[in-house]
Amino acid sequence: MTAIAGTVPSTSASPLHRRLAQGKTLPILIVLAALLAIWYAFTVYLNAPWQIDAYERAGTEWTATDLVRDTMAQERPVLPSPHQVVAEIWQTTVGTRLTSKRNLFYHAWITLSSTLLGFGLGTALGILLAVGIVHNRAMDKSVMPWVIASQTIPILAIAPMIIVVLNAIGLSGLLPKALISTYLSFFPIVVGMVKGFRSPEAIQLDLMRTYNASGRQTFFKLRWPAALPYLFTSMKVAVAISLVGAIVGELPTGAVSGLGARLLAGSYYGQTVQIWSALFMAAALAAVLVGIVGVAQRLALARMGGRS
């Protein structure tokens, strides 16, 4: 932050300066700096009581500078400072062997694999249900209320049940976790795709009828391509909540690996720095996944004549 802020005045007429002044970069940096400042302020404020206690117990003299310095360097702070989290992330990713169980990338990969499996299954299930709802009157009337009801049950309540039931029938490991992701991610896909499959205009459907097109032809030549923009938008939501599902799925299983397991272990041992670094890794993972879906969306829609 300080490095960038320092370069701005000295390169007043450079392209960098113009970019900062005209583009989105400067506003984003300002917001980021404000967030960091607030975070640091809270770090001092929230960690100070414990720190003052510690000073008094040890009988040491302390100044405000000491307090600020020490509240940012506690081992188990109420709120770790940003640089502590960054240091922890750095140490547990780059600073550790990739195959080690202490590497955060290893845990991210465990969570990612069940996220992707659950997301794939959820997308397929969502599309199939949407096809049924759009083409079958009985399904249209009966399925949608259940789909909506399924999402009103808190996932934290149902996740242990799924794990226990599946364990009883001999399924364990990746699949039960993935199914929790599926349970969450099929919903936006169903809702989006029902809307997408119904998005063709009346005259486009009439047109297919004048050609005496079969139901199959109408689906693949009209409804499916018309629904694709809706699919990508739904997939962006679905992939993010698949990750949430995978993390939640790791909590009741007593899993030893995965970002969820790191969160749980961190909270058992009061390792707030570990919790925050796992949270940031999860956020980064979600951002990357949503970004990948976004790129796929742009590529696919550009081929379909999108105006981009």
């Binding site: 205009e201 005259i203 047109l207 004048t210 030549k221 391509p225 004549g305």
Partner: peptide, 14 residues
């Protein structure tokens, strides 16, 4: 018969 509708109704992805 061929039918021409009020709006062109072209498929935007084609």
């Amino acid at each position: 018969y061929g039918y021409v509708f009020q709006a062109a109704g072209l498929f935007p992805w084609r």
